[in-house]
Design a protein around this nucleic acid. Structure first.
Lengths: 226, 226
DNA sequence: CAAAAAAGTCACAAAACGATCACAACATTT
DNA sequence: AAATGTTGTGATCGTTTTGTGACTTTTTTG
């Protein structure tokens, strides 16, 4: 007794778009098409879109940039589409807010399954804006951070960093990725270290033996959520 | 049923580039051009490239060096292009990460066939980010290494070495190749031995009788994955 | 079997890396 | 404009990693 769900497919490659449209319509989805980022935003505005499939590589504005723009306003599930699966590690590292990642060579069945999976997730969990670990809690809507129930006041950069880490536990972020994301690519590893040192000072029960933000030698940092 | 694949051709010789472009476009590939290494990296960054054709001899940075740089971040198939066929023997075994080698005098048909072959190979193996042997597991995205399920902490160099070996089981790497790849060509065989000794200490169940990294007398080392 | 060459191990020093402090530059608020 | 808070840079110190030399063990060869 469900209404038809609408998926927006964004890719400049028409053959891929057609392919995906076939798969998805066969499974009972309604499909909208956009061939570039600008058009995608328009379609998104004018239709009730339940999920997006987004090509990373597109002429003009990239899928990355588009994702960021969409995320600024909406939490609609986004699936990234990439030609090469080794891109996917890089994308995960960038933590752009994609909900899943598909390789273009994936089978029709797999693609449809992934789409259904993110839809299921987004339905059952109508947006969680609190990240909760044993002792540490982030409220994403108010930017409030609690350590053992006590409010901790973080600067903007500290909070943004912590949020990225807390949203991706166990993932190793390289210095380069962090610089890319928080310092527009210009800057020094040292800057990252100092910033994280200050963050630890505030959120680590014992900053000398960090529990949450761990260093990975020669590479970068990683968040451990128990 | 497949999307257009994009090939990046890197060669300073414009006539060769044009020739290759014609061949490949005739076969339905999309072709990008770069005349030097620097430009190639930019193009690679900005486009979804499915394979590279790389001239070995180029002014400035050589094809070797470029290949190494690319391999540091990606597993995109690389075909080397050389004027003389006797160069090619030298290149093979250098373990630079090239996937095939073409002589410049090869026929259009052969070149296209080679390109298609590497593409097929790279597709059928959708690039795993976990390398799994019976007792040893590498997670390429988190750089985590497990021995019998137990986490092993490796230094950056140890991990990089292990990864190379684990990715190319049964392949014999000479001291020279290892020095070339991990020590920028400067260094001593002794350094390699010590480094591998330390690595064995950590990953070999019995370091006195190595199971994974075996020595090849007088030549170098080799990884046995059962 | 002995000598030579290659490989392995250990210990120590040099180099690279990470954490922290202090201070200056910059932005924000009042 | 002063006060306050935030962020980047330089200096310093402790830690981890890595290269080198001395020494031992193993393998090859005559």
């Amino acid at each position: 007794m469900e209404a038809k769900q609408t998926i927006l497919v964004v890719d400049d490659d028409k053959s891929i778009v057609e392919l995906l449209r076939d798969f998805l319509e066969n499974e009972g989805f309604s499909v909208k098409i956009a061939h570039d980022a600008k058009r995608a935003l328009v379609v998104l505005e004018e239709n009730a879109i339940h999920a997006l499939i987004l090509d990373i590589m597109m002429p003009g504005q990239s899928g990355f940039e588009l994702c960021r723009q969409i995320r600024a306003e909406s939490d609609v599930p986004i699936l990234f589409l990439s030609a090469r699966s080794d891109d996917i590690d890089k994308i995960r590292g960038l933590a752009l807010g994609g909900d899943d990642y598909i390789v273009k060579t994936a089978s029709p069945g797999e693609i449809v399954a992934r789409v259904k999976a993110v839809l299921r997730r987004s339905h059952s969990q109508p947006k969680r804006n609190v990240i909760d670990y044993d002792r540490l809690t982030l409220d994403l809507s108010t930017r409030e951070v609690l350590l053992d129930g006590q409010s901790v006041s973080l600067t903007p950069k500290e909070y943004d960093l912590l949020r990225l880490f807390a949203e991706h536990p166990k993932h190793v972020f390289t210095y380069e990725q962090l610089l890319e994301r928080f310092w527009e690519g210009v800057g020094d590893k040292h800057t990252v270290r100092v910033q994280l040192s200050r963050l630890r000072e505030k959120i680590e029960p014992n900053p000398n033996a960090p529990q949450f933000i761990k260093n990975v030698w020669g590479i970068g940092y990683c968040f451990k959520g128990e």
